[in-house]
Write a protein that binds this DNA or RNA. Structure first.
Lengths: 235, 235
DNA sequence: ACAACAACTTACTCCCAGTAAGTTACTCGG
DNA sequence: CCGAGTAACTTACTGGGAGTAAGTTGTTGT
């Protein structure tokens, strides 16, 4: 009764049809299939989950909520995704793939290192502007935990980060002054810093009323980092 | 029975003394006070909570756990701290005060801007090395959430961050090239970046097997940022 | 000694992740 | 067309943890 999403319009869940009246029409013309194959349901579930996680956060979302949204019962989700973490993980994986691809493309399309850095920043902030949902899922709750005891979701988020760290490290390495071989610690520190900076900036932009444009932020970040990157460890 | 911390040694919780034998001694000599005044209990609870949150994270800690550790029943904690969030918040507030003070002191003790930045970084990483507990509490779970729906703990963590952002902003402003007045967006972007970078570096250091020293990290970060900071927006 | 209050407990409720076991609709070989 | 087999799905539960109502016991001031 409180269902806000009248999925399969006719055919009430059965066991409620006292009056045979309903609507005047006969139902001989193939009642809209309630049953779908696994792949289709999984897709439905993933979409619903992505939306709800994005709106209410990991903690704020119950499996019953998602089930209700899809119009299905909870155990079915468990059958397909195993656990709440599993479901969240699936959302993450999808979003990560999209985000990583977007940024990588931008970086690879650039002609020189300076431009690659800038383009990567812009792509990152732009993507998150264009997919507010994605962003919420990526950071909220799941993103936060750095504690080993925090379950698979945290681990998955770490994977996302690791991928970016690697991308950034590669860029930094490519960008080293010719003769220079910086030690790995330095590269890692720099990559971690940039990753942390962009994450925090993304969060900040998503919460401030009138955030500066992706280009402005990317520009400022570029200005802040570029000099230091160019002269990396030449002291 | 499973209690690992035999706080108040004798005097079992009552209602278990079938045999009057117990130990041979009489208990006439003032049984170790089980009752304490509110302030003392609150302190006990805070310490236990800080430790357990630090070990198992916010999610991984149950109020019953904390209650058991203190040797007290759960509702008492609720009476004093109101909720799990309230308890966590109290831990956070304490740690924040310590951390902020440590870093501020280091910054203020420095003689010039360049040194202040470096000293601040070192103090930050050093403090977190010295207080692994504190660190876990500050970042785990509670730290992660950027979602408004994530409760007071998230809000409190934001306050911690806001304090640092402000400190960093002040430093950046002081450090501006003489005639230069950067716009506020730029300052904010830079402050957010530095905050994000140091947070991520701290997390990274806490998880990697042999992290570089605080000085090394601070140095690298300094090298990365200093050039950019000095020439802020002079393009 | 005893009233009155602070410190504390037992024994619940409710909500949510996860599960056991059963039921219903599609499909495919005859 | 017709059952057997299986994939899709459900009802009805368990268990654990946050939070609470209402009562009990120690302490303290008079």
């Amino acid at each position: 009764m409180t269902s806000t999403t009248p999925k399969t319009p006719p055919v009430p869940p059965s066991t409620t049809a006292e009056s045979g009246v309903e609507s005047g029409v006969v139902e001989g013309i193939e009642p809209p299939k309630r049953r779908r194959n696994r792949a289709a349901r999984e897709r439905e579930m993933l979409e619903a989950a992505e939306r709800i996680f994005g709106e209410r956060g990991y903690q704020g979302t119950s499996m019953d909520d998602v089930a209700a949204e899809v119009g299905v019962s909870k155990p079915l989700i468990y059958q397909y995704y195993g656990s709440k973490d599993g479901l969240f993980l699936a959302c993450l994986a999808r979003l990560r793939a999209q985000l990583l691809e977007t940024v990588s493309d931008a970086v690879l399309a650039a002609t020189d290192a300076e431009d690659a850095l800038y383009a990567g920043f812009v792509a990152w902030f732009q993507f998150l502007d264009d997919h507010p949902h994605a962003w919420s899922v990526l950071i909220d709750e799941g993103m936060l935990s750095t504690n080993p005891a925090a379950g698979p979701a945290a681990a998955a988020t770490d994977e996302v980060r690791a991928a970016f760290i690697e991308l950034i490290s590669a860029m930094v390495r490519m960008n080293l002054p010719p003769g220079r071989t910086a030690d790995n610690d330095e590269i890692e520190i720099i990559a971690q810093s940039i990753s942390g900076a962009t994450e925090r900036l993304a969060i900040w932009r998503s919460r401030v009323p009138a955030p500066p444009t992706p280009e402005k932020v990317a520009r400022t970040l570029q200005d802040l980092l570029w000099q230091g990157l160019r002269t990396l460890s030449t002291t």
